[in-house]
């Protein structure tokens, strides 16, 4: 791969719209499986709230992704309130929400098929990987300074749309999240 001269504007065209979306969420983590509903909603202050509850209404967490890359834990059950887990989830959602994209640090690498649009973070790098014409977002990737640690994909919906499904897969330990959009849950 070699460095190429381009800018980040083409990546921003793939930014999905999470104005209001409800997903069925399945989480598999080191042999354990939990499921429920994940609500993503853009708030009037332009922050994005992400709430995870199980099917019976029991809330696992309520996170706020605020402007200027600030982050807030509004609520979390004690069992999940582990610094490493919260940090991992924050970074995962940052990648999907197209946050922490400092254009002053941006660079791009390319091989014959793909372009790796790189956004260095305080530790590691977020990559948005497109085809060479930047007409398709192939996948997203979080890397440490040495190797990829997580991959995510948006299906049927990016570039201003709400994705129908989202997959997040960690490469350094057994942790995956699968999201499938649920049509509007209107009262009966």
């Amino acid at each position: 791969m070699q460095k190429i001269k381009t800018d980040e504007s083409c990546v921003l065209l793939f930014k999905p719209d999470f104005v209001r979306a409800t997903y069925k969420i399945s989480v598999d983590v080191v042999g354990k499986h939990i499921s429920g509903l994940l609500v993503m909603k853009q708030m009037p202050d332009s922050s994005t709230r992400i709430v995870f509850t199980n099917e019976m209404g029991f809330s696992f967490f309520d996170f706020g992704f605020l402007p200027h890359d600030r982050f807030m834990v509004y609520q979390i059950v004690p069992q999940m309130n582990k610094k490493a887990l919260v940090k991992t989830l924050r970074k995962d959602f940052d990648l999907i929400l197209f946050r922490s994209m400092d254009s002053s640090k941006y660079y791009a690498l390319a091989d014959s098929n793909l372009v790796y649009h790189a956004f260095p973070q305080s530790s590691g790098i977020n990559f948005y990987i497109t085809d060479t014409h930047c007409s398709q977002l192939i996948k997203m990737q979080r890397s440490s300074n040495k190797k990829p640690v997580m991959e995510a994909q948006l299906y049927d919906g990016s570039g201003g749309n709400t994705p129908d499904s989202i997959s997040i897969r960690h490469l350094n330990f057994n942790f995956s999240i699968s999201l499938k959009k649920i049509p509007a849950l209107a009262p009966q």
């Binding site: 209001r20 409800t22 509903l37 609500v39 909603k41 708030m43 709230r49 709430v51 509850t53 209404g57 309520d62 509004y74 849950l185 209107a186 009262p187 009966q188």
Partner: peptide, 12 residues
Amino acid sequence: EKALSMLSENLN
């Protein structure tokens, strides 16, 4: 009905 008060959202 799960009412998410801050989000003004209900999950039915």
